[in-house]
Structures are given as C-alpha cells and as structure tokens.
C-alpha cells in the first residue's frame, strides 16, 4: 500500500519534471497577481505593507485554484484515472499521494517565493517569516479542499469556472486565519491561535478530503 503511494508520488513528480512549464506557470501567475496590486493601489509603503498579507493569501488562493484544473483532468482523458479506481489499494490513499504531489509542486513553490514578494510589498522581517509560515501550514488545506472540487467538476462543461465557484467559498476560513495571523501579530495579540487553527484546518482536511475526493472521482467516472 505504502509502495503504491510512493509510486504515485514518484509518478506525479516525474510527470511535472517532464513538463516544467505547468509548475512554473502557477508560480508566475502568483508573482504577477501580487505585482498587480502596487500598480492598482499605488506604491505607498504604508498601504502596501498593510494589505500585503491579504494580497499574498488571495493570490495564493487563486494560483492554487488555477492549478487544480489539471489535477485529474489529464489522467481522466488518457484513462490512467480509471486504472487508479481499479487499483488494488484504497483510492483515497492514491488520491492523498496525488494531493501531496500537487502541494509539493504548486503550494511549496509559493511558500518559498512569498518572502521575496513580501519584501517587495514592504513587510518587515518578522511579518515575512510569519507570513511564510502561515502559507506553509495553510496551503496544504488549499490543495486538499480543492481536490474535492476538481473531482466533482471532472469532465463537466465549464468545469474551470465552476471549480472556482465551488472551491473559493470553502477556502474562506483558510484565508481568514492565514492573513489574519500577521495582523494579529502586528497588533500585539499574537499569532499562536491563528496558526493553531490553521494547522487544525489542514489536519482536518487531510483526514476528510482524500475520502471525499475519492467519492467524487467515482461519481465522475460513473
């Protein structure tokens, strides 16, 4: 079982390495969206550092959601998804591996890139580190929750926009606690509670989302 999960992880990463553009597209999307804000809001350092956590989180939400479209779509078209459903191990475990790979390939790069963007937006060092930490804890939840939506909208017409409609409202708690942490630390309340809740959301999503995604995939392939 563990071996099958390892194979799945290897497969996803090998596939991503052979078409690097997809990973890079998500990352550049993230960078571009964040860069649009100074252009739209104005370059005042005060304002920018004030909105920076929210901007970074919203951009991360959108970037993660954009990459979700491809999470199952290609495997669905070439029939490999069918074979996963017929595998000798619980589908939810394979799905978990796939989501883990998705996070490693799209979530983690965002986390690593966020300090640079935080600096651009004029955040101080403490805030930048805290910001990156919230992204590290929170982005797995985005991949997990999004996977359910991706499974449900598989092969549906207008799937991409529909996916956004389904998934974005469910991302709201992650957004609130993720971007709220920096504010809380700045106002001296302390970010511990935010981080704990963010972690709890990710853990809960990790426990439930693979099963829900597996059920969604079964429905979509029926």
């Amino acid at each position: 079982m563990i071996e099958a999960m390892r194979w799945m992880l290897w497969r996803e990463i090998a596939l991503a390495m052979r078409r690097k553009t997809e990973v890079l597209t998500t990352l550049f999307f993230f960078i571009i969206v964040v860069s649009l804000f100074p252009l739209g809001v104005g370059p005042e350092k005060e304002t920018l550092s004030q909105i920076a956590p929210g901007v970074l989180w919203v951009a991360a939400l959108l970037a993660s959601m954009l990459s979700l479209n491809r999470l199952y779509a290609e495997d669905y078209l070439d029939g490999t998804l069918e074979q996963f459903l017929l595998g000798a191990q619980p589908l939810a475990l394979l799905v978990f591996s796939k989501i883990l790979a998705h996070w490693l390939l799209t979530g983690l790069p965002l986390v690593l890139m966020s300090p640079v963007l935080g600096m651009q937006l004029g955040l101080d060092v403490d805030s930048i580190l805290l910001m990156a930490l919230t992204l590290l804890i929170g982005t797995p939840a985005l991949s997990l929750i999004g996977s359910v939506g991706a499974g449900l909208t598989l092969g549906v017409r207008g799937g991409g926009v529909l996916l956004a409609l389904l998934v974005l409202p469910l991302y709201i708690p992650v957004l609130i606690f993720g971007s709220g942490a920096v504010d809380a630390a700045r106002t001296g309340v302390g970010a511990d509670a935010h981080l704990s809740i963010l972690g709890a959301i990710s853990v809960l999503a990790a426990l439930l989302a693979p099963w829900a995604s597996a059920a969604a995939l079964r429905i979509s392939l029926d």
């Binding site: 497969r11 090998a14 596939l15 052979r18 078409r19 078209l77 070439d78 029939g79 490999t80 069918e82 074979q83 017929l86």
Partner: peptide, 12 residues
C-alpha cells in the same frame, strides 16, 4: 481491465 483509454501516460 484494459479499456478504450489505455491508461498509458504520454510523458512516461
């Protein structure tokens, strides 16, 4: 099971 869709990944 081998169906219409082969389950063969083009990049591998």
């Amino acid at each position: 099971y081998i169906g219409h869709h082969l389950g063969v990944k083009a990049e591998l």
